[in-house]
Design a protein around this nucleic acid. Structure first.
Lengths: 205, 205
DNA sequence: TAGATTGTTAATCGATTAACAATC
DNA sequence: TAGATTGTTAATCGATTAACAATC
Protein backbone atom coordinates (compact mmCIF):
# COMPACT_ATOMS: atom_id res chain seq x y z
CA UNK A 1 0.00 0.00 0.00
CA UNK A 2 1.38 3.37 -1.03
CA UNK A 3 1.20 6.06 1.57
CA UNK A 4 -0.71 9.26 1.35
CA UNK A 5 2.22 11.59 1.83
CA UNK A 6 4.23 9.88 -0.86
CA UNK A 7 1.47 10.51 -3.40
CA UNK A 8 1.32 14.17 -2.42
CA UNK A 9 5.07 14.51 -2.88
CA UNK A 10 5.05 12.74 -6.24
CA UNK A 11 2.40 15.16 -7.42
CA UNK A 12 4.57 18.04 -6.25
CA UNK A 13 7.70 16.61 -7.91
CA UNK A 14 5.82 16.34 -11.16
CA UNK A 15 4.95 20.01 -11.13
CA UNK A 16 8.48 21.03 -10.23
CA UNK A 17 9.91 18.80 -12.94
CA UNK A 18 7.56 20.26 -15.51
CA UNK A 19 8.78 23.72 -14.57
CA UNK A 20 12.38 22.55 -14.66
CA UNK A 21 11.90 21.04 -18.10
CA UNK A 22 10.88 24.45 -19.39
CA UNK A 23 14.17 25.84 -18.13
CA UNK A 24 16.27 23.52 -20.24
CA UNK A 25 18.14 20.82 -18.28
CA UNK A 26 17.65 17.24 -19.46
CA UNK A 27 18.59 15.64 -16.16
CA UNK A 28 18.47 16.42 -12.47
CA UNK A 29 20.09 15.20 -9.25
CA UNK A 30 18.05 14.37 -6.19
CA UNK A 31 19.59 17.20 -4.22
CA UNK A 32 18.64 19.74 -6.88
CA UNK A 33 15.02 18.67 -6.77
CA UNK A 34 15.26 18.52 -2.98
CA UNK A 35 16.10 22.21 -2.80
CA UNK A 36 13.05 23.10 -4.89
CA UNK A 37 10.65 20.78 -3.14
CA UNK A 38 11.76 21.56 0.39
CA UNK A 39 12.32 17.85 1.01
CA UNK A 40 15.50 15.88 1.76
CA UNK A 41 17.41 14.26 -1.10
CA UNK A 42 17.15 10.90 0.64
CA UNK A 43 13.39 11.26 0.79
CA UNK A 44 13.26 11.93 -2.93
CA UNK A 45 15.43 8.94 -3.82
CA UNK A 46 13.23 6.85 -1.59
CA UNK A 47 10.05 8.12 -3.23
CA UNK A 48 11.45 7.39 -6.67
CA UNK A 49 12.06 3.75 -5.75
CA UNK A 50 8.39 2.97 -6.17
CA UNK A 51 8.29 4.39 -9.69
CA UNK A 52 10.29 1.60 -11.30
CA UNK A 53 12.59 4.07 -13.05
CA UNK A 54 16.21 4.32 -11.94
CA UNK A 55 18.59 7.21 -12.26
CA UNK A 56 22.30 6.85 -12.79
CA UNK A 57 25.05 7.95 -10.38
CA UNK A 58 26.66 9.87 -13.24
CA UNK A 59 23.73 11.80 -14.72
CA UNK A 60 21.15 11.66 -12.00
CA UNK A 61 17.57 11.35 -13.28
CA UNK A 62 16.43 12.10 -16.83
CA UNK A 63 13.70 14.68 -16.43
CA UNK A 64 11.55 13.40 -19.30
CA UNK A 65 11.68 9.77 -18.24
CA UNK A 66 11.05 10.72 -14.64
CA UNK A 67 7.98 12.70 -15.65
CA UNK A 68 6.71 9.76 -17.67
CA UNK A 69 7.19 7.42 -14.74
CA UNK A 70 5.41 9.70 -12.29
CA UNK A 71 2.52 10.26 -14.68
CA UNK A 72 2.24 6.55 -15.35
CA UNK A 73 2.18 5.92 -11.63
CA UNK A 74 -0.19 8.71 -10.59
CA UNK A 75 -2.65 9.03 -13.44
CA UNK A 76 -5.43 6.81 -14.65
CA UNK A 77 -4.97 5.17 -18.05
CA UNK A 78 -8.08 6.99 -19.27
CA UNK A 79 -8.44 10.64 -18.41
CA UNK A 80 -10.25 11.26 -15.18
CA UNK A 81 -12.69 14.00 -14.27
CA UNK A 82 -14.12 15.47 -11.11
CA UNK A 83 -17.45 16.94 -10.11
CA UNK A 84 -17.83 20.03 -7.93
CA UNK A 85 -20.83 20.44 -5.65
CA UNK A 86 -21.72 23.91 -4.39
CA UNK A 87 -21.14 26.81 -6.74
CA UNK A 88 -20.72 29.56 -4.13
CA UNK A 89 -17.80 31.98 -3.90
CA UNK A 90 -15.31 29.23 -3.18
CA UNK A 91 -16.81 26.82 -5.70
CA UNK A 92 -16.54 29.41 -8.47
CA UNK A 93 -12.95 30.21 -7.49
CA UNK A 94 -12.07 26.52 -7.75
CA UNK A 95 -13.77 26.21 -11.13
CA UNK A 96 -11.61 29.09 -12.34
CA UNK A 97 -8.49 27.63 -10.70
CA UNK A 98 -8.83 24.13 -12.14
CA UNK A 99 -10.18 25.40 -15.43
CA UNK A 100 -6.95 27.06 -16.47
CA UNK A 101 -5.69 23.94 -18.20
CA UNK A 102 -2.52 23.89 -16.12
CA UNK A 103 -4.27 21.38 -13.94
CA UNK A 104 -4.16 17.76 -14.97
CA UNK A 105 -7.57 16.96 -13.62
CA UNK A 106 -10.56 18.61 -15.16
CA UNK A 107 -13.72 19.50 -13.30
CA UNK A 108 -16.21 18.09 -15.75
CA UNK A 109 -19.40 19.13 -14.03
CA UNK A 110 -20.73 21.36 -11.28
CA UNK A 111 -23.91 21.10 -9.21
CA UNK A 112 -25.97 23.54 -7.20
CA UNK A 113 -29.58 23.98 -6.17
CA UNK A 114 -29.77 27.69 -6.96
CA UNK A 115 -32.07 28.09 -10.00
CA UNK A 116 -30.00 31.11 -11.10
CA UNK A 117 -26.98 28.84 -11.60
CA UNK A 118 -28.58 25.69 -12.95
CA UNK A 119 -28.09 25.02 -16.66
CA UNK A 120 -25.59 27.84 -16.93
CA UNK A 121 -21.90 27.59 -17.78
CA UNK A 122 -19.67 28.97 -15.04
CA UNK A 123 -15.95 29.41 -15.72
CA UNK A 124 -16.31 26.97 -18.58
CA UNK A 125 -18.13 24.33 -16.57
CA UNK A 126 -21.77 23.30 -16.92
CA UNK A 127 -23.82 23.60 -13.74
CA UNK A 128 -26.46 20.93 -13.19
CA UNK A 129 -29.31 20.75 -10.68
CA UNK A 130 -28.63 18.65 -7.59
CA UNK A 131 -31.23 16.09 -8.67
CA UNK A 132 -29.27 15.47 -11.86
CA UNK A 133 -26.06 14.75 -9.97
CA UNK A 134 -26.26 10.94 -9.73
CA UNK A 135 -26.99 10.61 -13.40
CA UNK A 136 -24.13 12.93 -14.41
CA UNK A 137 -21.72 10.99 -12.21
CA UNK A 138 -22.77 7.65 -13.67
CA UNK A 139 -22.88 8.83 -17.27
CA UNK A 140 -19.41 10.36 -17.16
CA UNK A 141 -18.11 7.70 -14.74
CA UNK A 142 -16.73 10.30 -12.35
CA UNK A 143 -15.11 9.02 -9.15
CA UNK A 144 -13.71 12.23 -7.62
CA UNK A 145 -15.73 15.03 -6.08
CA UNK A 146 -15.10 18.44 -4.56
CA UNK A 147 -17.48 19.58 -1.83
CA UNK A 148 -17.88 23.34 -1.44
CA UNK A 149 -21.37 23.49 0.07
CA UNK A 150 -22.10 25.08 3.47
CA UNK A 151 -21.18 22.93 6.47
CA UNK A 152 -24.72 21.81 7.40
CA UNK A 153 -25.32 20.31 3.95
CA UNK A 154 -21.95 18.62 3.50
CA UNK A 155 -22.73 15.22 5.04
CA UNK A 156 -25.93 14.78 3.03
CA UNK A 157 -24.13 15.75 -0.16
CA UNK A 158 -21.32 13.32 0.63
CA UNK A 159 -23.83 10.52 1.17
CA UNK A 160 -25.46 11.19 -2.20
CA UNK A 161 -22.09 11.38 -3.93
CA UNK A 162 -20.92 8.07 -2.50
CA UNK A 163 -24.25 6.47 -3.33
CA UNK A 164 -23.73 7.59 -6.95
CA UNK A 165 -20.26 6.06 -7.14
CA UNK A 166 -17.82 8.71 -5.90
CA UNK A 167 -14.77 7.18 -4.15
CA UNK A 168 -12.65 10.24 -3.38
CA UNK A 169 -13.76 13.57 -1.87
CA UNK A 170 -11.90 16.84 -1.52
CA UNK A 171 -13.86 18.47 1.28
CA UNK A 172 -13.79 22.23 1.82
CA UNK A 173 -16.74 22.28 4.21
CA UNK A 174 -15.64 22.68 7.84
CA UNK A 175 -17.04 19.32 8.96
CA UNK A 176 -15.52 15.89 9.38
CA UNK A 177 -17.41 13.65 7.00
CA UNK A 178 -18.42 10.16 8.00
CA UNK A 179 -17.82 7.89 5.05
CA UNK A 180 -17.81 4.11 4.60
CA UNK A 181 -14.62 2.10 4.26
CA UNK A 182 -13.11 2.48 0.82
CA UNK A 183 -13.94 6.16 0.34
CA UNK A 184 -11.03 8.57 0.61
CA UNK A 185 -11.57 12.03 2.08
CA UNK A 186 -9.09 14.89 2.07
CA UNK A 187 -10.11 17.82 4.25
CA UNK A 188 -9.13 21.35 3.30
CA UNK A 189 -10.14 23.07 6.50
CA UNK A 190 -9.22 26.68 5.88
CA UNK A 191 -10.35 28.03 9.23
CA UNK A 192 -8.20 25.47 11.05
CA UNK A 193 -5.28 26.22 8.74
CA UNK A 194 -5.49 29.95 9.37
CA UNK A 195 -5.73 29.50 13.14
CA UNK A 196 -2.68 27.27 13.03
CA UNK A 197 -0.72 29.87 11.10
CA UNK A 198 -1.80 32.61 13.48
CA UNK A 199 -0.76 30.50 16.46
CA UNK A 200 2.73 29.83 15.17
CA UNK A 201 3.14 33.38 13.90
CA UNK A 202 2.74 34.39 17.52
CA UNK A 203 5.23 31.82 18.84
CA UNK A 204 8.06 32.91 16.59
CA UNK A 205 8.74 36.33 18.03
CA UNK B 1 7.41 22.94 21.89
CA UNK B 2 3.83 22.22 20.90
CA UNK B 3 3.40 20.28 17.73
CA UNK B 4 1.67 21.43 14.62
CA UNK B 5 -0.90 18.68 14.45
CA UNK B 6 -1.94 19.23 18.05
CA UNK B 7 -2.74 22.87 17.30
CA UNK B 8 -4.80 21.88 14.29
CA UNK B 9 -6.77 19.42 16.38
CA UNK B 10 -7.35 21.90 19.19
CA UNK B 11 -8.73 24.34 16.65
CA UNK B 12 -11.03 21.62 15.37
CA UNK B 13 -12.15 20.62 18.89
CA UNK B 14 -13.03 24.22 19.60
CA UNK B 15 -15.34 24.39 16.62
CA UNK B 16 -16.98 21.08 17.48
CA UNK B 17 -17.42 22.12 21.11
CA UNK B 18 -19.01 25.40 20.06
CA UNK B 19 -21.49 23.46 17.94
CA UNK B 20 -22.09 21.05 20.79
CA UNK B 21 -22.71 23.87 23.21
CA UNK B 22 -25.53 25.08 20.97
CA UNK B 23 -27.14 21.64 21.26
CA UNK B 24 -27.45 21.81 25.03
CA UNK B 25 -25.11 19.46 26.91
CA UNK B 26 -22.99 21.04 29.64
CA UNK B 27 -20.33 18.33 29.62
CA UNK B 28 -18.80 15.85 27.24
CA UNK B 29 -16.75 12.64 27.39
CA UNK B 30 -13.61 12.18 25.34
CA UNK B 31 -15.19 9.39 23.31
CA UNK B 32 -18.17 11.57 22.36
CA UNK B 33 -15.90 14.28 21.02
CA UNK B 34 -13.78 11.57 19.40
CA UNK B 35 -16.71 10.40 17.30
CA UNK B 36 -17.32 13.91 16.01
CA UNK B 37 -13.70 14.78 15.39
CA UNK B 38 -12.72 11.49 13.77
CA UNK B 39 -9.89 11.11 16.28
CA UNK B 40 -9.31 8.51 19.02
CA UNK B 41 -10.47 9.23 22.56
CA UNK B 42 -6.93 8.65 23.82
CA UNK B 43 -5.63 11.26 21.40
CA UNK B 44 -8.15 13.77 22.69
CA UNK B 45 -7.30 13.14 26.36
CA UNK B 46 -3.65 13.49 25.43
CA UNK B 47 -4.26 16.77 23.61
CA UNK B 48 -6.21 18.16 26.56
CA UNK B 49 -3.28 17.52 28.90
CA UNK B 50 -1.49 20.59 27.60
CA UNK B 51 -4.45 22.86 28.31
CA UNK B 52 -4.11 22.81 32.06
CA UNK B 53 -7.78 22.00 32.54
CA UNK B 54 -8.77 18.57 33.85
CA UNK B 55 -12.01 16.71 33.38
CA UNK B 56 -13.50 14.40 35.94
CA UNK B 57 -14.04 10.65 35.58
CA UNK B 58 -17.66 11.16 36.55
CA UNK B 59 -18.77 14.07 34.35
CA UNK B 60 -16.10 14.15 31.68
CA UNK B 61 -15.19 17.66 30.54
CA UNK B 62 -17.28 20.77 31.12
CA UNK B 63 -17.87 22.20 27.67
CA UNK B 64 -17.70 25.86 28.73
CA UNK B 65 -14.48 25.48 30.72
CA UNK B 66 -12.92 23.41 27.98
CA UNK B 67 -13.73 26.11 25.43
CA UNK B 68 -12.22 28.74 27.69
CA UNK B 69 -9.05 26.70 28.09
CA UNK B 70 -8.65 26.08 24.38
CA UNK B 71 -9.26 29.73 23.56
CA UNK B 72 -6.82 30.83 26.23
CA UNK B 73 -4.26 28.46 24.79
CA UNK B 74 -4.79 29.16 21.09
CA UNK B 75 -5.64 32.82 20.90
CA UNK B 76 -3.60 35.93 21.41
CA UNK B 77 -4.49 38.09 24.41
CA UNK B 78 -5.28 40.97 22.04
CA UNK B 79 -7.32 40.22 18.96
CA UNK B 80 -5.25 39.28 15.97
CA UNK B 81 -5.79 40.10 12.33
CA UNK B 82 -4.53 38.84 9.01
CA UNK B 83 -3.72 40.42 5.67
CA UNK B 84 -4.62 38.86 2.33
CA UNK B 85 -2.45 39.46 -0.72
CA UNK B 86 -3.93 38.83 -4.17
CA UNK B 87 -7.60 39.64 -4.67
CA UNK B 88 -8.30 37.25 -7.55
CA UNK B 89 -11.08 34.67 -7.64
CA UNK B 90 -9.66 32.70 -4.75
CA UNK B 91 -8.72 35.79 -2.75
CA UNK B 92 -12.26 37.14 -3.00
CA UNK B 93 -13.71 33.77 -2.02
CA UNK B 94 -11.52 33.75 1.09
CA UNK B 95 -12.52 37.32 1.98
CA UNK B 96 -16.13 36.18 1.83
CA UNK B 97 -15.39 32.99 3.77
CA UNK B 98 -13.50 34.63 6.63
CA UNK B 99 -15.72 37.69 6.61
CA UNK B 100 -18.80 35.84 7.81
CA UNK B 101 -18.02 36.44 11.45
CA UNK B 102 -18.05 32.72 12.21
CA UNK B 103 -14.30 32.86 11.90
CA UNK B 104 -12.28 33.90 14.90
CA UNK B 105 -9.60 35.59 12.88
CA UNK B 106 -10.50 38.63 10.85
CA UNK B 107 -8.85 39.54 7.57
CA UNK B 108 -8.22 43.20 8.34
CA UNK B 109 -6.76 44.24 5.01
CA UNK B 110 -6.32 43.08 1.42
CA UNK B 111 -3.71 44.03 -1.18
CA UNK B 112 -3.55 43.88 -4.93
CA UNK B 113 -1.85 45.76 -7.74
CA UNK B 114 -4.93 45.99 -9.96
CA UNK B 115 -6.03 49.67 -10.05
CA UNK B 116 -9.64 48.52 -10.40
CA UNK B 117 -9.46 46.92 -6.96
CA UNK B 118 -7.30 49.39 -5.07
CA UNK B 119 -9.08 51.62 -2.54
CA UNK B 120 -12.28 49.63 -2.91
CA UNK B 121 -14.04 47.57 -0.27
CA UNK B 122 -14.39 43.90 -1.28
CA UNK B 123 -16.55 41.61 0.83
CA UNK B 124 -16.24 44.10 3.65
CA UNK B 125 -12.47 44.39 3.44
CA UNK B 126 -10.48 47.40 2.27
CA UNK B 127 -8.10 46.72 -0.62
CA UNK B 128 -4.80 48.59 -0.56
CA UNK B 129 -2.15 49.00 -3.23
CA UNK B 130 0.84 46.68 -2.93
CA UNK B 131 3.14 49.59 -2.13
CA UNK B 132 1.03 50.41 0.91
CA UNK B 133 1.34 46.88 2.27
CA UNK B 134 4.34 47.31 4.60
CA UNK B 135 2.81 50.37 6.20
CA UNK B 136 -0.58 48.69 6.72
CA UNK B 137 1.12 45.67 8.31
CA UNK B 138 3.16 47.83 10.65
CA UNK B 139 0.33 50.19 11.54
CA UNK B 140 -2.11 47.40 12.41
CA UNK B 141 0.69 45.15 13.75
CA UNK B 142 -0.42 42.20 11.64
CA UNK B 143 1.66 39.02 11.87
CA UNK B 144 -0.38 36.60 9.75
CA UNK B 145 -0.76 36.69 5.97
CA UNK B 146 -2.65 34.79 3.29
CA UNK B 147 -1.02 34.56 -0.13
CA UNK B 148 -3.38 34.12 -3.08
CA UNK B 149 -1.27 35.63 -5.86
CA UNK B 150 -0.24 33.69 -8.99
CA UNK B 151 2.64 31.26 -8.47
CA UNK B 152 5.38 33.35 -10.15
CA UNK B 153 4.77 36.28 -7.79
CA UNK B 154 4.43 34.33 -4.57
CA UNK B 155 8.07 34.28 -3.45
CA UNK B 156 8.55 38.01 -3.98
CA UNK B 157 5.34 38.74 -2.08
CA UNK B 158 6.45 36.45 0.75
CA UNK B 159 9.78 38.26 0.98
CA UNK B 160 8.04 41.64 1.24
CA UNK B 161 5.60 40.33 3.83
CA UNK B 162 8.35 38.91 6.02
CA UNK B 163 10.38 42.10 5.64
CA UNK B 164 7.34 44.01 6.92
CA UNK B 165 6.98 41.80 9.99
CA UNK B 166 4.78 38.85 8.98
CA UNK B 167 5.66 35.65 10.86
CA UNK B 168 3.03 33.20 9.59
CA UNK B 169 1.88 32.59 6.02
CA UNK B 170 -1.04 30.60 4.69
CA UNK B 171 0.11 29.95 1.13
CA UNK B 172 -2.37 29.08 -1.61
CA UNK B 173 0.11 29.62 -4.45
CA UNK B 174 1.41 26.33 -5.87
CA UNK B 175 5.04 27.00 -4.95
CA UNK B 176 7.19 26.02 -1.98
CA UNK B 177 8.22 29.28 -0.38
CA UNK B 178 11.73 29.76 0.92
CA UNK B 179 11.50 31.59 4.22
CA UNK B 180 13.99 32.33 6.99
CA UNK B 181 14.02 30.47 10.29
CA UNK B 182 11.22 31.66 12.53
CA UNK B 183 8.59 32.13 9.84
CA UNK B 184 5.83 29.54 9.71
CA UNK B 185 4.35 28.51 6.36
CA UNK B 186 1.27 26.37 5.82
CA UNK B 187 0.77 25.29 2.22
CA UNK B 188 -2.72 24.79 0.85
CA UNK B 189 -1.80 23.18 -2.42
CA UNK B 190 -5.15 22.47 -4.02
CA UNK B 191 -3.81 20.87 -7.19
CA UNK B 192 -1.78 18.39 -5.14
CA UNK B 193 -4.76 17.73 -2.90
CA UNK B 194 -7.05 17.00 -5.84
CA UNK B 195 -4.52 14.70 -7.49
CA UNK B 196 -4.16 12.82 -4.23
CA UNK B 197 -7.90 12.38 -3.95
CA UNK B 198 -8.15 11.22 -7.56
CA UNK B 199 -5.35 8.71 -7.00
CA UNK B 200 -6.96 7.11 -3.96
CA UNK B 201 -10.42 7.24 -5.53
CA UNK B 202 -8.97 4.96 -8.17
CA UNK B 203 -7.33 2.58 -5.69
CA UNK B 204 -10.48 1.90 -3.74
CA UNK B 205 -12.45 -0.02 -6.33
C1' DT C 1 -19.42 -0.73 45.92
C1' DA C 2 -19.20 -1.46 40.74
C1' DG C 3 -18.48 0.71 36.49
C1' DA C 4 -16.93 4.01 33.56
C1' DT C 5 -13.71 7.64 32.59
C1' DT C 6 -9.72 10.27 33.56
C1' DG C 7 -4.45 11.48 33.33
C1' DT C 8 -0.33 9.54 32.04
C1' DT C 9 3.19 6.22 30.95
C1' DA C 10 4.78 2.41 28.10
C1' DA C 11 4.43 0.02 23.75
C1' DT C 12 3.61 0.27 19.03
C1' DC C 13 3.56 2.00 14.77
C1' DG C 14 5.07 4.58 10.83
C1' DA C 15 7.70 7.94 8.60
C1' DT C 16 12.14 10.28 7.96
C1' DT C 17 17.00 10.41 7.94
C1' DA C 18 21.61 8.56 8.07
C1' DA C 19 24.71 5.53 6.21
C1' DC C 20 27.07 2.91 2.86
C1' DA C 21 28.21 -0.47 -0.74
C1' DA C 22 27.45 -0.38 -5.68
C1' DT C 23 27.74 2.31 -9.73
C1' DC C 24 28.85 5.48 -13.31
C1' DT D 1 41.10 6.10 -11.06
C1' DA D 2 38.77 9.55 -7.87
C1' DG D 3 34.60 11.63 -6.79
C1' DA D 4 29.93 12.14 -6.63
C1' DT D 5 25.46 10.05 -6.78
C1' DT D 6 22.48 6.18 -6.77
C1' DG D 7 19.41 2.33 -4.53
C1' DT D 8 18.50 0.42 -0.29
C1' DT D 9 18.96 -1.01 4.44
C1' DA D 10 19.52 0.21 9.27
C1' DA D 11 18.95 3.69 12.79
C1' DT D 12 16.47 7.43 14.45
C1' DC D 13 12.85 10.13 15.35
C1' DG D 14 8.18 11.37 16.37
C1' DA D 15 3.44 10.57 16.68
C1' DT D 16 -0.40 7.48 17.85
C1' DT D 17 -2.42 3.92 20.48
C1' DA D 18 -2.81 0.68 24.21
C1' DA D 19 -2.85 0.00 28.87
C1' DC D 20 -3.76 0.83 33.61
C1' DA D 21 -3.75 2.84 38.26
C1' DA D 22 -6.32 6.69 40.17
C1' DT D 23 -10.65 8.83 40.50
C1' DC D 24 -15.42 10.01 40.71
Amino acid sequence: MVREKTIGRLSLYRRLLTELQGEGPKSVYSHQLAARAGVSAAQIRRDFMILGYSGSPAQGYEVAKLLDSITHFLDAPESQGAILVGVGNLGRALLAYFGTGRARLRIEAACDNDPKKIQRVIHGCHCYAMVEMPEVIRRQSIRTAIITVPAPEAQAVANDLIEAGIRGILNFAPVRLHVPEGVFVENMDMAVALEKVAFFARQHV
